[in-house]
């Protein structure tokens, strides 16, 4: 795992990608620091970090597009997969490689709060909280990028797809607020969800009976839920979609509220996508 991590870091800083990522992030942090902190004479450093989230979403693909796609394209995955190292270790090594580049960049930006502290009072607890939040938020995005990179052997496709998905995450709060919240639409949504699960099962097993059974079971459960407690369907769509609302969890950190639930959320979100990447690579070997 350490070998993979070392190799990833090496590749980032031997090719231009690591530098490009760092340069663009540092440039925008510096820019927002000057604009919000220096020009307006504000000691609120966290507003810089939250301003930077959108820029960060745009440049995450630089970091992640290569991870799995390039190995598949150059057939170097053959070396990794036939060496005595387990698949989860390979994936985690790669993930940590990308995450360390982010960590390194964030450590450099720490200069700015230090500069700020020479000119005024900085609330260090708030700044540290903001950094932890930003790092976890970034790690979650990188996990998504890692997973998408494992779906293709083309870096450009991986980058564009990652970009699209992250953009969707960006807009998801706006989407949620304009969705219908009544019980009927929640019910329909639940039924569609059951159908989707059944379909996923069908693609995995190619068995009509099992997936049909799952669909029927799902519909029955949905219907039963409706008769027992119809209120669970009001606002269901928003509830489900908010699982993917990465940004809303970040708000707490930037406001200086330090609570455990967004930390758990980000770590589990990342873990799920790292796990999905492992599953994806495993599946490729069986197909």
């Amino acid at each position: 795992m350490l070998a993979i991590l070392k190799k990833e870091l090496n590749t980032y800083f031997k090719s231009m990608t690591g530098y490009i990522f760092m340069a663009s992030l540092l440039f925008f942090v510096g820019l927002f620091f000057v604009l919000t902190n220096l020009m307006r004479m504000s000691p609120q450093y966290n507003s810089v970090l939250s301003n930077i989230t959108f820029v960060f979403m745009l440049i995450v693909p630089i970091l992640t597009m290569r991870l799995m796609a390039e190995e598949a394209k150059q057939k170097t995955d053959q070396l990794l997969l036939t060496s005595p190292i387990s698949l989860p270790k390979i994936v985690i090594g790669k993930y940590l490689g990308a995450v360390s580049v982010l960590l390194l960049t964030l450590m450099i930006t720490f200069i700015y709060p230090l500069i700020l502290s020479t000119m005024g009072t900085v609330n260090w607890g708030e700044v540290f909280g903001g950094y932890i939040g930003f790092f976890l938020f970034g790690s979650a995005l990188i996990a998504v990028g890692l997973f998408i990179s494992s779906l293709t052997d083309n870096q450009v496709i991986a980058a564009v797809a990652t970009f699209t998905v992250l953009l969707l995450f960006w807009f998801i709060d706006a989407i949620i607020s304009s969705l219908p919240a009544d019980q009927t639409s929640g019910l329909i949504f639940a039924a569609i969800l059951a159908a989707a699960i059944a379909f996923v099962f069908y693609t995995a097993t190619r068995n009509w009976y099992i997936s049909g059974g799952i669909f029927l079971l799902g519909v029955l459960a949905v219907a039963a839920g409706y008769f027992i407690k119809p209120s669970i369907y009001s606002g269901l769509i928003a509830k489900v979609l908010s699982w993917f609302s990465l940004l809303s969890r970040y708000q707490d950190f930037s406001l200086g509220i330090f609570s455990i639930s967004p930390i758990v959320y980000y770590i589990s979100f990342s873990s799920v996508f790292v796990y999905l990447t492992v599953r994806m690579l495993e599946k490729k070997r069986w197909s």
């Binding site: 150059q74 057939k75 170097t76 995955d77 053959q78 070396l79």
Partner: peptide
């Protein structure tokens, strides 16, 4: 393997 699995930038 058929195509030697090499990393070009190493």
């Amino acid at each position: 393997p058929e195509f030697p699995p090499l990393y070009g930038d190493m």
